[in-house]
Amino acid sequence: MADIQNTVHKVAPAKPKNVRSHLLIAQLIVLLAVLPYLANLFGQPALVSLATRIIILAIAAASLNLIMGYAGLASFGHAAWYGLGGYVVGILYRHSVTGDPLFGLPIGSDQMLITVPAAILIAGLFAAIFGSLSLRTSGVQFIMITLAFAQMIFFFFVALKAYGGDDGLIIRRRNALPGLDTRDAMVWYWICLGVAILWYALLSRIVASRFGRILVGVRQSERRMAAMGVRTYPYKLVAFVIAGMGGGLAGALMANHMRFVSPDMLHWTQSGEFMFMVILGGAGTLLGPAFGAAVLIGLETVLAAWTEHWQVILGPILVLAILFTRGGLSGLVRLVRGGRDD
């Protein structure tokens, strides 16, 4: 059982402030901020929507990375929180249009400042419930049980005919944000980018804190942490809830981005994709999941443009990536970030 804790992806714990890496992050942010202009300049306006999608998925992947990469808890159910976040936005929107009460309360909103925090809270609440159960297991049971719980939520929404069931919910207008036109593709891109930057900043603080150190300790050796007098369960649970909240945030943004939610968001293959983003980018590195999301979605987009049967190529690529690269781009990322090369 020790093998799941001692994941092969060795992680450099939060390092002291490093001027070079700060400069790099600043450059990256500037590049991302001017990306819509570049896309228009090169006559590829569709790129803005693709980049928005990658940024949103990067939020979800980074959240999964907190538990999977740092704490070594491989959750195969991350799509549950992502989908729940999406459905909160969809359901609130539906009620704001029809004016029907929800649970007898006049709930319903198309204001982003209400719907997104609501999505985060609901996802966090359910992550707390299911996490408290799932964390009673470890290793391969944890993988299976998070998958099974996510599947349960998937079936719940498939059966929920009042909110579209299989067909999902259409959101006719993106949620409003005071002072900004969210329907403009470039404005929407910047909003998502801003949220992502805030989320990554928050995660970097969490990882660098004592709490984050304990999570890394849990991954390295839970028994050692226990011997040091740390009750690991509450730490793992809080991390699980934060990850769930991040998933909910990403789902809420994605529901707005696609203007559609369906059980597809909760599908177990979505959970698998999140895991791949983390692993390809480098588990336990701050920016790894963002690179992973970009690589995976980029690969999917390129292959899908080439052939309808792109999965037949993607599948073996992913298998080879796992078999032979041991942590995907993480080595590269670590090198760029100037970390120790282990």
């Binding site: 994941t7 599948g315 298998v319």
Partner: peptide
Amino acid sequence: RDHLDQVLATFGLILFFNQMTII
């Protein structure tokens, strides 16, 4: 390898087998 790698590699196999069956 750890279970995570096993899950992901065999997940890649599923994508392959499903799509191959469709083809």
